[in-house]
């Protein structure tokens, strides 16, 4: 279980960083999205992995930590808004710079 989650987070982070280093704005926006998925998944694990247990009450001695779930909710909302902003900005850059290169150079 731990290994699977760690692999998933690692793969998402790696792909995100690889895409962020690309030269076109669309892969960069995708890379940011993957990276935000990785952070969200990572935040879940910060309360330690607990399976089949309710948060807070009614679960006997072992309960899932509810705080990371609240943090993830906040992080999802923020990263969603930021991704939308980046995509709009990339479109503006495509029109204004007549290129979708991240430096606004090269052939479109």
């Amino acid at each position: 279980m731990e290994a699977l989650v760690a692999l998933a987070i690692g793969t998402l982070t790696g792909c995100g960083i690889y895409l962020m280093l690309r030269t076109r704005t669309f892969p960069v926006a995708l890379g940011l999205t993957l990276l935000s998925y990785a952070t969200n998944l990572f935040l879940f694990t910060t309360g330690r992995l607990v399976m089949g247990r309710p948060p807070l009450v009614g679960g006997g001695s072992v309960t899932a930590d509810p705080l990371p779930q609240a943090l993830v909710l906040t992080a999802i909302v923020i990263s969603f808004a930021m991704t939308a902003f980046v995509i709009v900005l990339a479109l503006v850059a495509r029109v204004e710079l007549d290129s979708d290169h991240v430096d606004g150079a090269g052939s479109p």
């Binding site: 962020m20 960069v28 980046v86 990339a90 503006v92 850059a93 710079l97 991240v102 430096d103 606004g104």
Partner: peptide
Amino acid sequence: RTRAGLHYVV
């Protein structure tokens, strides 16, 4: 502004 802004935001 857009060119610098894209880098800044990302």
